[in-house]
Design a binder for these strands. Structure first.
Lengths: 360, 360
DNA sequence: TTCAGAAAATGAAGCGATTCAAATACCCTA
DNA sequence: TAGGGTATTTGAATCGCTTCATTTTCTGAA
């Protein structure tokens, strides 16, 4: 804009330079930035002009040092490549964006050592607060008393009990939802395919499955076959089918996540079985692929956006009114999405008629 | 460990407190942290002890303020939910982790306004440097002269010309690779299905496809059908097939990404055609699903890990030896992964024999 | 025992912004 | 035109840490 605009690219401009340029004191510059109402409109214009000419950007480190709250929040997840966490991350980001905050995304990779390193790093950065998907294998929520006291933390996808704020999704309810749906359709012999039960989520989903059977008056011990595979991918699902085929085939299969379900699907097809005619199939997570799978997959949808959003709000709340904050635990309910893999009456959707051009 | 350990959770401990506790000066504490060799072993032990007792964590803001380089690097991507960028992010993180750096992941969502807001925010944070996947639609690399001069930037998945460091993948080569493969298999009438050509990557891949045909002595105008669809998902691929079926069916189809290829697959199957018997199919990106698709998909693999790794190295290099840094452009080559969707001789892999247990 | 030189420890001066008590400028009334 | 009150502006002190010129302590040779 101005002839001096390119000077912005010179060495870092500090508040003193702006003050000198506008011929006012540093205090006035600071005020026009942080308390514009305190400075005379004429002066304000002058200073704003100078700021623009010089391309001044206040040093955030210095600001925070003098007591301002940081505009950074930390987000520690177990896996940056997981659609679940990235969905949540995105939701978090969207909901704090308007408050001028940015998210510092960190990856603990499920390792406690790395996790605590990250936490103290975030504390050292004096971030505004942290959203943490804990790497703790079981409900050792008490472990987290070691967190830096003055670091507001909200637990993500984990119920923190009374000692922490947290937002989680009810996995037991999700498991129950899936199995109840299958029971409603008239299936009775059901298999649950899940990852290692030492993974909290899978154990809870299995528990929900059992509970739903019991509620329906069936004996889970007898009617529910539980298969645990070591991994969580498509191939593991295929493997699970092989294990299942060694016994009596169940009428329906509920998988701990969608990838396993896809694998199960392939395994069934390879064995000459049809979904849902011969076996009904339910996944978990409702990832993008579920609705576009060869046979669209019935799945349990996690309220990911809500999860991220609520966590962010909780953190903002937690980190602003520093006095008298009561920890709150939000537990969200998952949702059943019925598709063809359990119900042949659901019509396959035709592709939309969106635009497209061909050049021959 | 010590009886005073829990005091760490008290209010924030500063270097003065440590100094008082260990009965030394602040300078000495600082030295034992940053230049241990300058302080007497005996004293050092004392101070380290005190640091531990008090749970002292130096305020990073203050450190940076006094001139230390930050241990944070920024990473600005176009989409936090894209496996491509998250793969790269993960690689970046892994390769800087050992240097004690953390990554601040930001999402420009492809919007230039947001992008520049993020950049000046990162500059204000005084991060060590930034890896940027630019939101600029075309090669307007010159636009980036506006970047804060003292902010080292490495462009990601974008060739920055001589004015910037950059690491990118050769999309033209990728397109050529795919089409050459199809030509080698004896196919001649080929279709390219891509997203809007205004997306740099897709335009380049299409160019590569054309070039490969020309190199083989075929006229792209005549033998290559180009289909552009508006979206990039499975449904869009299905739509593309409908468009293609209005004309003569090509012998092979090359898609600008794997999702489109999956859609094309479904479209073909719906039309009663087999892959690869009736039509050969090639995707792009080699996402996880490609190798596990009903018919494993031949695809062009992007060297994502390498991309992230090299970018990180370039940035570290760029941001350390501040003097005399020459901008380097790294261009990586994509790789062809042949699977059944183009070559029926490739045996479908059997699922592994990994562990699994059944409880009946 | 003394003393030069090396080693270790000290503590005041910044880093860049914000704050706030104190100093000025401005306005209006008497 | 003086006086009192409000509106602005000023600039030194401060945040927590690092640096570095000094001071103090230690070594070992003379």
């Amino acid at each position: 804009m101005s002839k001096a605009a390119d000077s912005s690219a010179r060495a870092s401009v500090k508040i003193r330079d702006v003050a000198a340029f506008a011929d006012v004191s540093t205090g006035t510059v600071s005020n026009t930035i942080n308390h514009p109402e305190r400075v005379h409109p004429r002066t304000r214009l002058l200073v704003e002009q100078a700021i623009r000419e010089l391309g001044f950007v206040p040093n955030q480190q210095a600001r925070v040092l003098t007591g301002a709250v940081s505009n950074v929040i930390g987000l520690v997840v177990l896996d940056v490549e997981s659609p679940f966490y990235m969905g949540a991350a995105h939701a978090v980001e969207r909901s704090v964006r308007d408050s001028g905050l940015v998210v510092m995304l960190c990856n603990s990779e499920g390792e406690i050592v790395r996790e605590s390193a990250l936490l103290s790093m975030l504390a050292a950065q004096h971030v505004r607060g942290v959203l943490l998907a804990p790497a703790t294998p079981e409900e050792h929520a008490d472990r987290y008393v070691n967190l830096p006291q003055d670091l507001p933390v909200v637990l993500l996808d984990f119920d923190g009990g009374a000692t922490h704020c947290s937002v989680s999704v009810d996995n037991v309810a999700g498991g129950a939802l899936a199995v109840r749906h299958l029971l409603d359709l008239g299936h009775q012999r059901i298999a649950y395919v899940g990852g290692s039960l030492s993974l909290r989520q899978f154990a809870q989903r299995a528990a929900g499955a059992r509970q739903a059977m019991a509620d329906a008056g069936l004996d889970p011990e007898e009617m529910l076959t539980e298969v645990s595979v070591s991994g969580l991918g498509i191939r593991d699902g295929q493997r699970a089918v092989e294990l299942l085929l060694e016994g009596t085939l169940p009428e329906a299969i509920f998988c701990g996540n969608d990838m396993l379900a896809f694998g199960v699907y392939r395994g069934l097809v390879n064995a000459g079985l049809r979904v849902p005619e011969d076996v009904a199939l339910v996944g978990y997570d409702d990832i993008d692929f579920a609705k576009n799978w060869v046979v669209p997959l019935t799945s349990i949808r996690q309220p990911i956006d809500d999860l991220g959003h609520q966590a962010a709000q909780l953190l903002l709340d937690h980190s602003s009114r520093d006095s008298s904050h009561v920890h709150r635990q939000v537990i969200l309910k998952p949702e059943l999405v019925v598709r063809r893999s359990t119900d042949r009456r659901v019509e396959p959707r035709r592709p939309g008629s969106a635009g497209g051009t061909v050049k021959r």
